[in-house]
Simulated scan of single mutants.
Amino acid sequence: MEKKVVGLLLSMMILSLLDGTSKASQINDITCAQAGQLVLPCVPFLQGIGSEQPSTSCCSGAKSVVEGASSTQNRRDLCQCLKKVSSLITINPDRAKQLPKLCNVNLPFDLDPKIDCNS
């Protein structure tokens, strides 16, 4: 029960941050806040809480976000958005690197909280 309460509070904090930092820019019709909502189910997996596998809703959201960011600028904007959020929560770097493979999401780079979004 305590983990659910912590997860709910963390989710609310992330969504409020995303809402405040989304600006008016869009990422192929997906705002920063919408992208955050789509990948929110991935937070427990990325933190190393619970299952060794990401949930179906996590993988579905990750695929939707990756498909929505089709241009270089879209990917940079999305990277900055998610990097900002990842700096506020503790993410297991090994789990972040595993996520694309486990969700069958094709990324030309490793997910890493320290990634240079401009490269």
Rank of each mutant, 00 (worst) to 15 (best):
Q26D: 07
S11G: 15
K97T: 09
K4H: 09
G20T: 07
L8W: 08
S57C: 02
Q98R: 13
L9K: 14
S86M: 06
Q73L: 15
P108G: 05
Q34C: 05
I30G: 00
T31S: 15
L40G: 02
Q53P: 00
N28Y: 05
L8I: 08
C59A: 10
N118Q: 11
I89C: 07
G36T: 02
C59E: 12
L102S: 02
L9D: 12
Q26N: 05
V85S: 12
K63Q: 13
Q80K: 11
V65H: 09
A62E: 13
V6H: 01
K84S: 14
N92K: 09
D110N: 15
N106M: 01
V65T: 13
D110C: 02
K3Q: 13
S71A: 10
L78T: 10
P41F: 05
S64V: 05
N92S: 11
I14S: 03
L10N: 02
E2K: 11
E52H: 09
A62M: 15
C32D: 01
I115R: 15
C42V: 03
C117V: 11
S70I: 06
Q80P: 00
A96S: 12
K84N: 13
M1P: 07
L17H: 12
N92C: 08
N106S: 10
L78K: 11
C58Q: 09
C58I: 06
R76Q: 15
A33T: 00
I14E: 05
V65K: 08
L99P: 12
I49N: 04
Q26F: 02
